[in-house]
């Protein structure tokens, strides 16, 4: 098992290393210390990938249960809209307590969105892709409604620190993402949650009959996904110091799902890998930066992404491996048996 698992992450890791290598070569500052902070393109990549890491983390848990959450982009938009709306109403936009309240409210709304998704999936019993499609369509409308179709600008130091601030020489956004990763790993691997998630994803009926409260666990994953998406929405909106309910988190669900798949978690649920997902998210962000860094117009990023998607999916497809590398490589564990002519 472990060898196969290592194999699955080998190619993604290699691709990441190569792309980072290109970056290190082309950028004049790959990693350096300035004003007591870490700087450079590596740090930029990591900082920039924070929202995607957050969204993809939640997505991993949802996908592990055999679900999918298409609404994360809309939740980001809602969360950013709520926070910016509350902050713009503050007398002093730099008031720390005011910003905290705004952030708290945004997270609360995101949790509610996750709860809605989870309830539709686990209680009403709707297919996840459809259940979350509802919020995906309507959520952005809600965000637009909150902001009355306008882009809300905020001038709040504490709020923009979420995206561009530093703490202990490291970007706060990166720290938030790292904390979320740590929390998720702790939550799933130090408790039995990971096993129960994989069991529910592997077979919901069998899990129920084994006495697993699949319903509660499933709802929980959507709530976590909602909260992480909300957090990502805050970082993204803090980055541009405004709430743009149309473009915030647009298409991020696709990137997040992609990150999960690159990380070796199958879309049908079951076994999942959090480290794989983080790797996937960083790859996607690195690709975005690298394409620009080597002087290719930003528009071509999508083309490269499609190439990466195809390459990775094919490399993970047993059928493709079998066809290309012959059948001896498809099942490395098995012993070979001579076939007489």
């Amino acid at each position: 098992m472990t060898t196969i698992f290592k194999n699955r992450l080998f190619w993604p890791a290699l691709i990441l290393v190569v792309m980072l290598g290109i970056n290190a070569f082309t950028s004049n500052q790959f990693i350096t210390i300035k004003d007591g902070h870490l700087f450079g393109s590596l740090i930029d990549i990591l900082r920039g990938s924070a929202p995607l890491i957050l969204v993809a983390l939640g997505m991993t848990l949802v996908i592990a249960t055999g679900g999918i959450d298409l609404s994360v982009g809309s939740v980001m938009a809602i969360s950013g809209a709520v926070a910016c709306l509350l902050i713009s109403d503050l007398d002093n936009q730099n008031s720390l307590s005011g910003v905290f309240i705004a952030i708290g409210a945004a997270i609360l709304v995101s949790l509610a969105a996750g709860l809605w998704n989870g309830t539709l999936v686990a209680v009403v019993g709707i297919q996840p892709i459809i259940a979350t499609l509802i919020l995906m369509v309507a959520g952005r409308g809600l965000a637009q409604l909150f902001t009355e179709g306008q882009i809300i600008n905020v001038q709040s130091g504490p709020y923009s620190a979420l995206a561009s601030g530093f703490f202990l020489t490291l970007p706060i956004a990166l720290l938030i993402a790292a904390a979320a990763v740590g929390l998720t790993v702790l939550l799933t691997r130090r408790t039995a949650l990971g096993l129960l998630l994989e069991s529910v994803g592997g077979s919901p009926t069998a899990s129920r009959l084994a006495g697993i409260g699949a319903r509660r666990i499933t709802i929980m994953t959507y709530v976590v996904a909602g909260a992480f998406a909300g957090l990502a929405g805050l970082i993204a909106s803090a980055d541009i110091k405004s709430a743009d309910s149309i473009s915030a988190g647009n298409l991020i669900e696709l990137d997040a799902i992609l990150a999960v798949v690159i990380g070796g978690t199958a879309l049908i649920g079951g076994r999942f890998s959090i480290i794989g997902t983080v790797l996937g998210a960083v790859i996607i962000q690195t690709l975005r930066v690298t394409v620009v860094a080597i002087g290719i117009p930003a528009e071509a990023n999508l083309l490269f992404k499609s190439v990466v998607v195809v390459a990775l999916c094919l490399s993970q497809s047993p059928e493709f491996r079998a066809k290309v590398f012959g059948r001896f490589k498809s099942r490395p564990a098995a012993e070979k048996v001579g076939v007489p002519a």
Binding site: I134, V137, A138, R140, G141, L142, L145, G149
Partner: peptide, 8 residues
């Protein structure tokens, strides 16, 4: 925005 919400 209402059209999105209603479709939702």
């Amino acid at each position: 925005a209402w059209s999105r919400i209603i479709i939702g």
